[in-house]
Write a protein that binds this DNA or RNA. Structure first.
Lengths: 186, 186
DNA sequence: GTCTATAATAGGATAGAC
DNA sequence: GTCTATCCTATTATAGAC
């Protein structure tokens, strides 16, 4: 059976929501403890190295969900266009329809950027690579595939920023719908 | 003559760099004071309401530079495509070639988002409107113009996020170059 | 106007009881 | 494993001298 009703994975996922909403510097220990419904001292029992460790584990866990929920569908079989459509649906869920920000954004600012640069770069590059591979399978040249992959990520990140700033998740959803039509254009 | 060698405008511009690098919660009074080479107490002399006021004035000042350096070129005369190209060059300077983040991103997180939502939304909408007007002048339908404007802003914001996360300003510069080719496509 | 000094509070982290 | 209590530092903010 599970180690506890609130597994470590569930704890880390709840912590991730705080970092996604408030960024690293804006997430206080009090906020983080409240999110998992524990005292601060209990959090330190689980994360002896404190906030820096929480951020690191959040990045690993979200990297894993990205892999399992989003990138894996790019590698299934069937026509590339259909896999891309499925990925976009998964992305919509991953960011809760534009209501959640991306850690690539919120953990790349200030000191967090220096702390987590390597992990952030790695996540981005895995995603870009999976998209590039997909585009290659659809017949894109290597150069076109890499550009298209970069554009997809730019659109996802940019629409999340605008959705947050305007408090209008529809910006993100519209962008996903338009992205669906960019595949196979060239 | 000027009120001081460091005019208020210059002070606010230096403060803006801290908010753009570290976000609102990550910008400490010590950081902000160091950026303008003053003691913390002197900063409070100039901004009696503290950090919240600094953020508000930074947003106003950057909104003004955006207007003067970027949006104004969209409203000059000459062919729309040329104006758009000029805007992209101005955008490149505005974000220092991808080395500076956008306040729409860094001031929309956590409590800052609640504090400054109105100002952020207003800035975004002014920019979108100027782009939409340009596209209309180039013969786009109202619907296509609005979509294109949104896509341009999404690309700017998204490429800035990725450039920061990967510590590679080229992501931003490449995106601007590609944007130049999106105008007049439909 | 700017500074040093200092207050007051919040944030990160730990000790030790249960 | 979780809590209360506490410590230490950083942070926000102010008082008062120059």
């Amino acid at each position: 059976m599970r180690p506890s009703r609130n597994s470590r994975q569930e704890i880390v996922q709840k912590l991730s929501q705080v970092f996604r909403r408030d960024s690293y510097s804006g997430a206080s220990l009090a906020d983080l403890a409240a999110a998992v419904d524990l005292g601060k001292a209990s959090l330190y029992q689980k994360f002896p190295e404190g906030k820096a460790q929480m951020g690191a584990e959040v990045l690993m866990e979200i990297g894993r969900s990205l892999e399992n929920e989003v990138l894996s569908v790019l590698r299934q079989d069937g026509p590339p266009a259909g896999r891309f459509t499925k990925m976009l649906a998964a992305v919509g869920n991953f960011y809760e329809g534009g209501r959640l920000s991306c850690l690539i954004d919120t953990l790349s600012l200030g000191e967090a950027g220096r702390l987590y640069r390597a992990a952030l770069t790695a996540s981005i590059e895995r995603w870009e690579q999976a998209l590039t591979d997909l585009a290659r399978q659809a017949g894109y040249s290597a150069a076109k595939a890499a550009i298209w992959a970069e554009e997809v990520l730019i659109t996802i990140e940019g629409s999340l920023v605008l959705a947050r700033a305007k408090n209008d998740p529809q910006v993100f959803r519209r962008a996903l719908k338009r992205l669906a039509r960019t595949f196979g254009e060239r």
